[in-house]
Design a protein around this nucleic acid. Structure first.
Lengths: 190, 190
DNA sequence: AAATGATCTTGATGTAGATCAATAAAGTAA
DNA sequence: TTACTTTATTGATCTACATCAAGATCATTT
C-alpha cells in the first residue's frame, strides 16, 4: 500500500493513532511523475508541500545566463516545495522536476493548515523537520563560505552517497556551486 | 519593563493569554552581556535558546587557519543559539559573542520543551520562526552559489541596512564569505 | 595625552576555479 | 542500426577574488 511508506517515515518523529491516520489519508494526493516532468515551474504559485515516496526530485533556480542552481534534492522520505512561494502565495522563483521516474504525495497548503489544527502532532512534525533543515542549511552555508570546492565535494559524497550514485555529476556541481569540469578534475586526482 | 519587548515581539506570531504570559515569564532568564563577551564557546554544550532584547550578537566558527566564519547575526527581536549543539547535546562548533553591549533572555532547552507542552502556541511560534529561517537560509545558499561577491554584498546592504550600519565591515565580509579587502574595493567603485 | 588595538584602504602579486572548446562515451529514441 | 541527446573528460586560457604588506584613521584603555 502506498500509504505505508509515508506513515512509517513520519513515525520516526510522531506517533499517530489510527483515527489520526484516517484523518490524514484524505489530504495526501498521490501522484506519479516521469523523469524530467515538472512538479512546479518558476512563475507559477507553489500550492503544495510534497513528500517523495519513490524517485528523486530537485528544486532549482535559473539565472539570467541560463545556468541552473540547485537549492535541494529530495529522495525517498524527503519533502520538497518552493517554500517561500508556498508560504507567501507569491510566484515561485524555483522549478521543481523529477530526475527519475518518481512517486509523491502532495498536500495542499490549506489542507496542511487544517491538519495542524485537527492533528497538532503535525505541527510538531514540521517543527522537527524544520529544525533539522535549519541545521543542514547552516552547515551548507558555512561550508560554502569556508571550504574549497574539493572539500565541499568530498563532504557531499560522504553525507549523501545515495544521491551521488543516482544523479549526474553536473547536477551535484550545480548544487555545490562549482562547474562539472572542476568536479571531473577533483575526481581524477583520486 | 524588560518583558514588554519580548511579548510584543512574539505577539506578531502568537497571541498569548495573561495566564500563558505568566507561565512563560519564569523561564526567561534575563542576562546582560558586554561587548566581546561570550555567550557560548565552541567545545561547550549549548544549553539555551537566546532572544535578543538589545544589542547585537554573532554566531561563528573558527577554522584551522584561525579565520572566523559568521553563521548568523542577531539584533533586537532575533533568536540565536548553536542549534545543532542545542538539539543534540553535542559540543558546540560555534562561538556566540556580543558585538555590542547587549541584553538577552535565555531559555533553557528543557524549559522550552515543557513550554511546548504547557503552552502549545510556542510550538507554533517556533515552527513559524523556523519556516522564516528556512526561506532566509535557502536564499543565502542560492546567493552563495549563483552570485558574485559584489552582488551578495549589495543584496546584504539592501536586506539588512541596520546591521550594515552597526557592524564592522570585516564582520560582514566574514558573513558573506569574502575578504574585507574585497568589500573595500567594491565600496570604492561607488 | 599617550599608547594600544581595531578598522579600513590601497597596491602588488598569486591562485582556485571559471570559461571555452573539442572529443569521447554512454543513454535513449526512432 | 542509426541518429540524437546527455554526460563526462581533458587541455588551454582567463579572471574574480584571495593573499600579503604597508600605511592611515579611528576607538578604547590607562
Amino acid at each position: 500500500m502506498v500509504f505505508d511508506f509515508f506513515f512509517k517515515s513520519i513515525s520516526r518523529h510522531i506517533k499517530l493513532t489510527d483515527e489520526e491516520i484516517e484523518l490524514t489519508k484524505p489530504v495526501l494526493r498521490h501522484k506519479k511523475l516521469r523523469k524530467r516532468q515538472y512538479l512546479l515551474q518558476a512563475g507559477d504559485v507553489c500550492k503544495v508541500e510534497t513528500f517523495v515516496i519513490k524517485g528523486c526530485l530537485r528544486a532549482y533556480t535559473v539565472d539570467d545566463k541560463g545556468h541552473e542552481h540547485i537549492a535541494m534534492f529530495a529522495i525517498e522520505g524527503w519533502w520538497i516545495s518552493d517554500f517561500y512561494s508556498l508560504l507567501t502565495g507569491s510566484e515561485a522563483s524555483q522549478n521543481i522536476d523529477a530526475l527519475e521516474d518518481s512517486e509523491v504525495f502532495c498536500i495542499e497548503k490549506t489542507d496542511l493548515e487544517n491538519l495542524y489544527l485537527q492533528v497538532p502532532k503535525f505541527e510538531r512534525l514540521f517543527r522537527i523537520l524544520l529544525q533539522n533543515a535549519f541545521v543542514a542549511h547552516q552547515q551548507r552555508i558555512l561550508a560554502g563560505i569556508s571550504q574549497t570546492a574539493e572539500e565541499r565535494y568530498k563532504s557531499f559524497i560522504g553525507k549523501y552517497p545515495t544521491i551521488e550514485q543516482r544523479v549526474p555529476q553536473h547536477q551535484i556541481a550545480s548544487y555545490l556551486g562549482i562547474t562539472p569540469e572542476t568536479i571531473s578534475r577533483i575526481r581524477k586526482l583520486r
